[in-house]
Each structure stands twice: as structure tokens, then as C-alpha cells.
Design a protein around this nucleic acid. Structure first.
Length: 406
RNA sequence: CGGAGUGUAGUGUAACGGUAGCAUUCGUGCUUUGGGAGCAUGCGAUCCGGGUUCGAAUCCCGGCACUCCGACCA
């Protein structure tokens, strides 16, 4: 893609009211635009990262046996009254509105009800189980206070998978496998080494759940109190307190939702049994923000190759000599032919500005096309993460790049 | 939802109750071309609504927005 057509631009200063590192960098680099507190629009660069994260999660969910679908955002009151989660006194973060005819509806803040309600139509026999539907969707939460940039939004994009199992054993087996999938996801987006599974409160529906906490030098501490520690039999003095961000959460729901929705199946003996449920969530925006919090440096963003918006940042150093532009164009074409995603800085800007922008945007590999390089038949290659610079002969370039992209 | 603070060009900032200035971005021209370069020139702002005053960015009231601390966080 031509950088001149990118739509967004970098800036030197972050808006003064944006305090979190993730939002400051993402805004400065032109990945997101702030609509209001807790509500961000994704610009082309940001969307590309989100899509890569989505692809990785989708891949892992499919391997886990998940089936992708899409539940609606508009939810009817009746459904949520069944599980007693419509009342604002019990759930205070609903966005509610009305249809023209006065019917009350809400914007979904989670999916248990939606899935239980739908699956009731399709589950009737033990032969229908287990099933693991999931979706990616925008979720709306009317938070009293939104903070930490993209880490805690009022509108955010997430993946939610729900497991529907015949009994506890079958559920537990899946639950354990889901942990591995989650671990794979965090590995693949580049924060696996810092992400740990932890015990957490089960909220309103189960005694405990598991959270995946990514350790970070900044932001967010949660779930660390005597009650939880005591009930887990842990000694507070033996624990180390770390700052971390919750990047994923899995719950065993038991029959908490299958009961109110009368979600039952007949077993081999013709007996009616309640379905055992679990839920498994990951916020994609939060995950992206977490990667930013953890991997960025003082020059800007640093994306792991797996979720970088582009693999290569191709930079031409502006010159009177039109050979530079021609060479850069031709290289851009060659890379594209080989299926390599390239952001090509074709702007008429000075080298310093381009280098700074490149560091800020954080694409893993930078290739510089300059007049002096062309004379020698060489390109300069810089790895964003390490800052390591190499000079590569023109004939070796494609091979080098292919190897790097793998 | 409780407490505190802040609202000035796209962004960052200045202005005692008395001409809204500076930097950057952006437009134009020239110079420049390996780490946000230089000269010239131009465009662009006081959150909204009331009030006090000869006069309000500035003081007062209300609203809205944002930020911070806390509560909350399927």
C-alpha cells in the first residue's frame, strides 16, 4: 500500500487528555481515532492489526472445534428477563433503547443469553452435543467510567465462544483444552511469554474462573483480595504482586443459563438432562492495546510479525534522481507479487521524517532505497525490534525478505 | 455512581477584565534531501447557553465534554 494513500498521518504529540500509553501511541501513529471516552474508531493501520489478531483467534477456535456464527447486537428484553439480567439494578451497564412501537431492546454486553436462546431450538438429543459456537462482534457496555485507552471500552470488539456439553466431565475436558488454545493465541500475538493463567472471581455465575493476565509495566490491577486468596488456600506472603492486564477470561457456567432457558437434551436412556455451559472471551482491542503496552519502546510501536499491519516498510529517500523512485516502485511491485505485505513510503518527505514515522508505526522490517544504495546495488535493511541494520545486495534481497516474513 | 480538576486553530500551548499570540500541522513559492531542515507567504481557535460589566478566553450560574482518584468491571 502506498503510504500517501493511507488516510491517517502520524503526529508528534498525543492529545493531552489521552494518558494511557496504548492510546497515545496508537493515536500518534494513526492506528485509531478517538470518538469519545472508551470509544475508538479503527483507521486502516489499526484495522489491519485487528484483522490479523482476529485471524489468529479464529484459527485457534476452529482447531479447538469451534463453529463461527454471528449473534445479533440488538437483544430483546424477554430473553434477558429469563436469566434475570435485564434489570438495571442487577446489570448497570446496559445500553437500552426502544423500537418505534415501544418495545424495549438492549445492545448486547455479553452473549450467554443469546446463545442459550438460539441453541434451545437446535439441541434436543445427546447426539447434538457437544457444540462450541463462537462469534466476533461488537459489544456495548455503558461503563460509568472508561479508562486506559483501548483497554476498557464502552464499545469494543471481542471473540466469545460458548461450550455446550453433556455433563461436567465433557465440559472439563473442553475447558482444559481451551486453556491451551488461549495460550497458543497469546503466543502467536507475541505476548505469550508474559501471559499467565490465574484464578479469578467467577462473577455472578461461578465460584471461580480463569483469567489470562499479561504482565506489563503499566496499568490495571485486579482480583487480589484476602477473600479470594483465602478461599483458594493461598498465602498472600508467598505471592508476588505484579501489574497486569486481563487479556482473556474463561468461565465454567454449569447450568446457570441452561436452567432458566430450559436448555435440555435427552440422553441415551431418554432422560432429560440440563446442558452444561462454559464461556470463553477475548477482547481484541484490549489484546492489541496490551501488545502495545508491553512491546512498544521510546520510539514508538513495535509489532510482532504475526500481527503487524504490514511485513515490510519500504522507504524511498527522496532525490532529484528519478532512479530512486523507479527502483522503489519496482521493488514494491516485486514484493507484492510475492505476496508480501508492504507499506511503501512514497511521500515527498525528508529522510528524517520518514525514519521517525517508520519507527513510530512499528512495522517489523524496514527497507531503504536511496541513491547511494542504488549505485552500489545495495539496500539497507533495519529490523524495528532490535534496531539492527544490515546491507543486502540487490540479488539477495528477495530471499532475505522471504526468510524474514516466514 | 461519589470526589477532584480541566475545556483557546487538527495537535501542543500563551494572553492582569481591554488588539486572541507562539509552535507544529495544513496550502502556496523557493531552497534542501540519510534521523521530524530553512526562508517567505497564507488559511485556521476561545465547548454550549445564560448572567455581571462600557468591555468576558478571563468573573458568576447552568449544561455538556474530557482527565484523574475511588466504586464497578460478564
Amino acid at each position: 500500500m502506498y503510504q500517501s494513500k493511507l488516510l491517517s498521518k502520524t503526529r508528534k504529540d498525543a492529545p493531552k487528555d489521552e494518558v494511557s500509553k496504548n492510546a497515545q501511541l496508537l493515536i500518534r501513529a494513526g492506528f485509531v481515532s478517538k470518538e469519545m471516552a472508551g470509544v475508538y474508531s479503527y483507521l486502516p493501520l489499526g484495522l489491519r492489526v485487528m484483522q490479523k489478531i482476529e485471524d489468529i483467534i479464529r484459527d485457534e477456535m476452529n482447531k479447538l472445534g469451534g463453529t463461527e456464527m454471528k449473534t445479533s447486537i440488538i437483544q430483546s428484553k424477554e430473553v434477558w428477563e429469563k436469566s434475570n439480567r435485564w434489570s438495571d439494578e442487577l446489570v448497570d451497564n446496559w445500553f437500552k433503547t426502544k423500537l418505534k412501537n415501544g418495545t424495549e431492546v438492549g445492545l448486547s454486553f455479553t452473549n450467554e443469553e443469546a446463545y442459550a436462546n438460539i441453541l434451545k431450538q437446535y439441541i434436543s438429543s445427546y447426539k447434538d452435543l457437544p457444540v462450541y459456537p463462537y462469534d466476533f462482534k461488537s459489544i456495548f457496555r455503558n461503563e460509568a467510567r472508561s479508562k486506559s485507552g483501548v483497554l476498557r471500552g464502552r464499545e469494543f470488539y471481542w471473540k466469545a465462544l460458548y461450550s455446550f456439553s453433556k455433563e461436567e466431565n465433557e465440559h472439563n475436558e473442553f475447558y482444559e483444552r481451551s486453556k491451551i488454545s488461549y495460550k497458543n493465541i497469546f503466543d502467536r500475538v507475541g505476548i505469550g511469554h508474559l501471559t499467565h493463567i490465574t484464578f479469578a472471581s467467577g462473577g455472578t455465575f461461578s465460584k471461580f474462573s480463569h483469567e489470562f493476565q499479561a504482565v506489563t509495566p503499566a496499568v490495571n490491577k485486579e482480583v487480589y483480595n484476602d477473600e479470594v486468596l483465602n478461599s483458594l488456600g493461598l498465602d498472600k506472603n508467598k505471592l508476588v504482586e505484579l501489574k497486569s492486564i486481563e487479556v482473556g477470561n474463561i468461565f465454567s457456567l454449569g447450568t446457570k443459563f441452561s436452567e432458566p432457558f430450559d436448555l435440555k437434551y435427552k440422553n441415551e436412556l431418554g432422560e432429560e438432562k440440563l446442558v452444561v455451559m462454559g464461556s470463553y472471551g477475548i477482547g481484541l482491542g484490549r489484546l492489541m492495546g496490551t501488545v502495545v503496552e508491553i512491546l512498544s519502546d521510546d520510539k514508538g510501536l513495535v509489532w510482532p510479525a504475526s500481527i503487524a499491519p504490514f511485513s515490510i516498510h519500504l522507504i524511498e529517500i527522496s532525490s532529484e534522481n528519478d532512479k530512486v523512485k523507479k527502483t522503489a516502485e519496482s521493488l514494491y511491485g516485486k514484493l507484492a507479487e510475492n505476496g508480501i505485505e508492504v507499506l511503501y513510503d512514497d511521500r515527498d518527505a525528508r529522510a528524517g521524517e520518514k525514519f521517525n514515522d517508520s519507527d513510530l508505526i512499528g512495522i517489523p522490517l524496514r527497507i531503504v532505497v536511496s541513491e547511494k544504495g542504488i549505485e552500489k546495488g545495495e539496500f539497507e535493511i533495519k529490523e524495528r525490534k532490535s534496531g539492527k541494520i544490515e546491507i543486502i545486495k540487490e540479488k539477495d534481497l528477495m530471499e532475505f525478505v522471504k526468510k524474514f516474513v516466514e
